[in-house]
Structures are given as C-alpha cells and as structure tokens.
Nucleic acid binder design. Structure first.
Length: 489
RNA sequence: GGGAGUGUAGCUCAGUCGGUAGAGCAACGCACUUUUAAUGCGUAGGUCCUGGGUUCGAGUCCCAGCACUCUCACCA
C-alpha cells in the first residue's frame, strides 16, 4: 500500500458519507445559515444559566467524542469554541446523522443551552437542529499538536488558521491594529489615498524592483518600491494631510524581517517637519500599544521591550560614539573600527563606512523604542538638510528590538536641490533601475509645502505588538517557493 | 550565494553499537447517555527525501543532489 492510496482510502470513506447524506436528501455542502451567534458570546450570555435559553451556532468540528448514544463535539468558529451535544433521545429521527459527522466538517447547530456534569456549557441539539454546511474530505491535522510543519503552515494557512487558534488571534489583532491606525489618522484630518502600484519609474527608495509588462502599451513597468513620490505630488496638489497603507515590493533577499511584498504606511503632513512626525509616530504607535497590548512591557524573542512613553531620542552621531566609541568626524577611527568588525571598508565612501559601523554596533542594541535623529545628509537624498549643520539631514528612524520600524524626515521641497540629489543617487546605482523622475521635479517646481513625511513598517509593528519574531507569522500568505506541480497521470 | 540543522505512517515524533520498522493521535471495526486531547478491545497503514557508494547486511556510515528551517551575506 502506498501512502497515496491511504489518502484515497481516507477520502473515499468520507465520500461514502456524502453519498449516504445525499441518499437521505441532505446537501452535504449546505446553504445559507442565518442568525448565527458567535460561540464565545453564547457562552458569555449563559453565565447566568437561566433555564430555557436557546442558541444557534455554526463552525468547524475540531474535536469529536462519540460515546455511544451521546456525541460531544467541540465546534470552532471565528470567536472561539463551544461544545455541542448530540443525544439519541433528543435527536430522534436525526440521530443517524450524528454518525455521518467527521472531524473537520462544518456544521450548524440549534438547541437548548445547558451544562454537563462537569460544568461545560453545551448546546444540546434539538430535533432537526443539526445542519450539514460543508463536508471535510481532506484529512485534518493531528488534533493535539495541530499543524506544526512550518512549511505546511504557511502553504496551507487555510488549515493553520483553525488548527492553531493563536494564529487566528494574531491575524485578528493585525486587522485591529490597522483599524486603530486608520481611526487615529482620520481623527486628525488625514485623508486615505491610493497611488499607483505599477510605476514607470520605481522611486522613493533605493531598492531593486520587480518588473512587469503591459501588453497593449508594450511597456515595462515596475511594482512600486515605495509610494513616496506620488504622495508628495498630492501635497503639491493641496491635499495637505494624506496617508496610504500600501503594499510595496522589493526584489531582495528574504529574512525573518523581510518579505518581498510588505505593508507599510506612509503619512505626509504639510507645514510639519520631522519633529512633528516624531511626536505623531510616538502617539500613533503608543495608541496601538494602549489598544492592543496588555501592558507596555512586551516580550520579543529573547528581548524584554519597554514600550512606555516617552521614548528615547538620540542623535545618530551620539549613538555612534556611545556604541562604537568612534567620533563621527574622525573617519580614521571609524575605518579602524570597521576593520576590527571585519568589514571590507577599503572601497566604501566615508559616509557608507560610518553607516556600516553604525548598523553593526548600534542597531542591535536599540531594544526599547529609540528615535535615531539627524542622519548624515548624503544618506538622505529626499530629505531637507539641517539649517544648523548641513552635513546632517532632518531625518529620524525609529528602532524597536533592534529592528527598523519607522523612517521619517522633513521633506525636501527645493526642486533644484532634489534634482542634484537624484543625479548623485543615480551614479553607480544601475542595478536598482533608478531613473531620473523629471515629472517629480516638475511637480516640485509648482511648489510643495514644507512637510513632514513618515513611513512605518506595518508588518514589523505587528511583529512587535504580537511577539512574532518572524515576519512570516504576521503575513497570511508569505512568499514561498512554489511547489512543483505533480506530473499528471 | 556561504555555514549549520532537519527530512521515518495522513499528523506529531521515537528508533541504542550497522542486524528484518515503533508509539500517540487520525483512520477502519466493536462497545459505551455527560465526555473534555473521552475510554477500552481489535484491524489496517511505510519509496525511512532521491540517487550512488562501503558492507554478508544501511533508517543508521560515506558521497552527491533535492526540499525545508535557522543563520550570515545582500537589503535607505
């Protein structure tokens, strides 16, 4: 016997039950089922145990205990679980149907609420109160360990979601966090907008894009690496406060913090600057913490993270000094440090070496939320330079648990300076497909109000707030290599 | 692309020194009207990832490949 025929045998047994149901005139794939109450709300309202209460619920059979003339079912729906009891003496003519149920089936149940001997709240299904809504033909995962194989969990998220309740909880929380963000911004007068995901010029970041092709225009297009340049066009247009919760795409390596397509939010506020955005960031994420975390201390892998406000604000140069011992202006010292970190600095520009040392020594150490302020200007082509020291740009990044969570700056609105920066950026970046965005320069020539702009990695934020140390646990269908299709025949 | 690890029943996993493949759950059959991962008895289920090699004999040792995981590199 091969395993394939075992699987077929399993499916055949269940197929047989479908045919038995059909012979009884019952559609195993059911239909509309109204007035369904979530399992957890049924249990909540029965706490007072008033006699004669009815309930109507629907869900998937995740546990099945057949003890003769009595069957106990644990039914799972989006809210949780509830026990459903089938009794031969109550079901009467419908009793034989109880023996056609299997683990994994989706059913509806109506009946009296009661408690069993051990106190479990149970829906005792009444006569004709059992509804077949969908037969499960495929074999469900093991009931106690759930679906544990990581690859299968991501590939078959449709099983993972009900086999592992904490998975469903995490994705419900993700939705709730995004709802909180929307409410927060809408309450402050920000308008949610949508800008192109297919762009002729992939701008707003330095990353390798994915290429796609428009047939009838015979035109190569890029999947956006950032919505930034379009959102700033909207500032020129006078929308003044906009945000986009956007999927962006970067053709780079995968890691526990990187998925090729990821969700971020970008926010632009006319007449603001990066200090305004820093306050906004702290309040925005703070409101998510308040709404969705039990308290401000969260665990993230091996880290204990304290999210209590206010958050530390420290200059880039000061953090470099603190963690590497190097003065940012002493390039020889920085290069010595780079060599001691086994970085090959010989071919790097000064600013790049500084940033490499910064990333190697500082970022991992920023566990509690830390705003890193005032980046070297050469690293920031879209950012306005500091009025007091033009070597630095008015930009911050927010780090939590060693992870870059947000990036914001005072937007550069000088078209001549922006044009110069683009030219510098284009040198030696052929592999990023970077192209001069002359239309963006033209837009700036019409006048863009001074503005603060902010980007927050939504996936990473959800990771922090739900304790998921890999980005694939907060993305419903993370990128995976496709499985080879089985050869037909 | 580099390094490390994993791959055994549908699922979760054992498998000792190289000596004819094991458990729990799921499945199938029987019993059971208050179970809680129900229980008891019975049955069935294997390309030990793939291909080579060593050996009288390989799930086990060696080589190569594949897949996945972790990690490093890449990554405004």
């Amino acid at each position: 016997m091969t395993s394939q025929s075992d699987t077929d045998k399993f499916e055949q047994h269940r197929q047989d039950k479908i045919e038995k149901l059909a012979a009884l005139g019952i559609d195993p794939y059911g239909s509309r089922y109204d007035q369904v109450e979530p399992a957890e709300s049924i249990k909540a309202r029965f706490q007072d145990e008033q006699e004669g209460q009815h309930a109507r619920c629907a869900g998937r059979i995740v546990l099945f205990r057949d003890i003769g003339k009595l069957v106990f079912i644990t039914l799972r729906d989006r809210s949780g679980t509830i026990q459903v009891g089938l009794s031969k003496s109550i079901l009467k003519d419908q009793w034989p149907l109880a023996k056609l149920l299997d683990l994994g089936d989706i059913i509806g149940a109506v009946g009296q609420l009661g408690r069993t001997r051990t106190g479990e709240i149970t829906i005792w299904v009444e006569e004709n109160g059992l509804a077949f809504l969908s037969k499960c033909l495929a074999q469900p995962p093991e009931k106690f360990h759930g679906l544990a194989d990581i690859d299968q969990r991501y590939r078959q998220r449709y099983v993972d979601l009900w086999a592992n309740p904490e998975v469903m909880e995490r994705f419900k929380k993700r939705s709730a966090i995004i709802a909180t963000i929307r409410q927060f911004l809408e309450a402050r007068g920000f308008l949610e907008v949508e800008t192109p995901m297919m762009q002729a010029i992939a701008g707003g970041a330095a990353a390798k894009p994915f290429i796609t092709h428009h047939n009838s225009l015979d035109l190569d297009l890029y999947l956006r690496i950032s919505p930034e340049l379009f959102l700033k066009r909207l500032l020129v247009g006078g929308l003044e406060r906009v945000f986009e919760i956007n999927r962006s795409f970067r053709n780079e390596g995968l890691s526990r913090r990187h998925n090729p397509e990821f969700t971020m939010i970008e926010v632009y506020q006319a007449y603001g600057d990066y200090n305004v955005m820093m306050d906004l960031t702290e309040e925005l994420i703070g409101s998510c913490v308040a709404a969705h975390c039990a308290d401000t201390n969260v665990t993230f892998g091996d880290c204990d993270v304290n999210l209590a406000r206010p958050w530390r604000r420290a200059r880039y140069a000061d953090l470099l000094k603190e963690h590497s011992g190097c003065d940012i202006d002493d390039i020889d010292a920085v290069r010595r440090k780079a060599r001691s970190l086994e970085l090959d600095e010989s071919a790097m520009d000064d600013a790049v070496v500084v940033n490499e040392v910064f990333e190697a020594t500082v970022e991992d150490a920023l566990i509690d939320p830390t705003f890193v302020l005032d980046y070297p200007a050469v690293l920031c082509p879209l950012t306005k330079r500091s009025k007091t020291d033009p070597r630095y740009a008015d930009r911050f990044e927010l780090f939590i648990a060693g992870m870059e969570l947000a990036n914001a700056y005072t937007e550069l609105n000088d078209p001549a300076q922006q044009y110069e920066n683009f030219l510098v950026q284009l040198k030696g970046q052929e592999d990023t497909m970077a192209t001069m965005d002359t239309d963006f320069i033209k837009a700036l020539k019409y006048g863009m109000p001074p503005a603060g702009g902010l980007g927050i990695g939504i996936d990473r934020l959800v990771m922090i707030l739900t304790g998921a140390t890999t980005i694939r646990d907060v993305i419903l269908f993370p990128h995976l290599k496709p499985v080879d299709a089985p050869t037909p025949g």
